[in-house]
């Protein structure tokens, strides 16, 4: 089976368990949006997929291969790219140097400096500026561009719009269709429900570390997602599958 598949994943930090029995599947080329309140476990889930954090239990398969035992480094080389929470640029490097380091995966593909500058044009003008001296939106663009330079087949985007003005977020989201044309699978974390519904093929709502609701975006209503988000749904939340 292609794409990404998690089965019964438990994870957390030390004694603290953040994720409980997470199972989900994202087909190749799909866009899955993770929604949920702060602390629901979205970032932890992305870290589990990228390999920065090892799960306590459960299996993670990527393109049919079990990757649970692969390090974060090997997963990056296998084509899983994470845009981490808080952007985490290399502050002393210039924009272009940040992007070039992103090519450290050694993967060939559609993305190179030229390609990234085309999709994220504001970066081309700032290419020689140090990352520490960029605005929040510019930094986020570099973080996305840096992940693209690794030519990922699965791109994980953590709270791209956090702390950014809506107009800047619009610019970043404008790059998404371009990114997806090459068949890249995307998993993103987004707080804004209308934006989520606009871009997602599939939605997964986390509540206190458990999947409260998941299904095709087209088959879900905002009311259902809001209920799942706040945990106000009836005890037996309808599991909408497709």
């Amino acid at each position: 089976m292609t794409g990404l598949e998690l089965h019964a994943v438990d994870a957390g930090y030390g004694d603290f368990q953040a994720l409980f029995a997470i199972s989900l599947h994202v087909a190749e080329g799909e866009l899955l949006a993770l929604v949920g309140a702060n602390g629901a476990g979205k970032s932890t889930l992305l870290r589990i997929i990228a390999g920065s954090l090892r799960p306590f239990r459960g299996s993670i398969r990527f393109d049919g291969a079990d990757i649970a035992d692969l390090s974060d480094i090997r997963r990056a080389r296998a084509g899983i790219g994470l845009v981490p929470e808080g952007r985490r640029l290399f502050p002393s490097l210039t924009v272009e140097e940040n992007l070039r380091v992103g090519a450290g995966t050694g993967r060939k593909g559609r993305w190179d400096l030229k390609g990234v500058y085309e999709v994220l044009p504001l970066l081309a003008e700032r290419r020689d500026r140090r990352a520490a001296r960029l605005s929040g939106g510019e930094q986020q663009a570099v973080a996305i561009g840096r992940a693209l330079m690794g030519n990922p087949r699965l791109l994980l985007l953590d709270e791209v719009s956090l702390g950014l003005a809506p107009v800047v977020v619009d610019q970043l989201y404008a790059a998404l269709p371009d990114i997806r044309t090459s068949g890249t699978t995307v998993v993103l974390v987004e707080q804004d429900l209308s934006r989520t519904f606009a871009v997602a093929d599939r939605l997964c709502c986390l509540l206190e570390g458990r999947i409260a609701l998941s299904g095709l975006a087209s088959a879900l209503t905002r009311a259902q997602v809001t209920e799942a988000y706040f945990g106000t749904a009836s005890v037996s939340a309808p599991e909408v599958t497709s």
Binding site: A50, S52, S71, D72, I73, R74, A76, R77, G81, L82, P84, R88, F90, V101, G102, A103, G104, T105, G106, R107, R146, A147, G150
Partner: peptide, 9 residues
């Protein structure tokens, strides 16, 4: 930590 996400050991 972040260079590891770029496939760098």
């Amino acid at each position: 930590e972040v260079v590891r996400l770029m496939g760098v050991d």
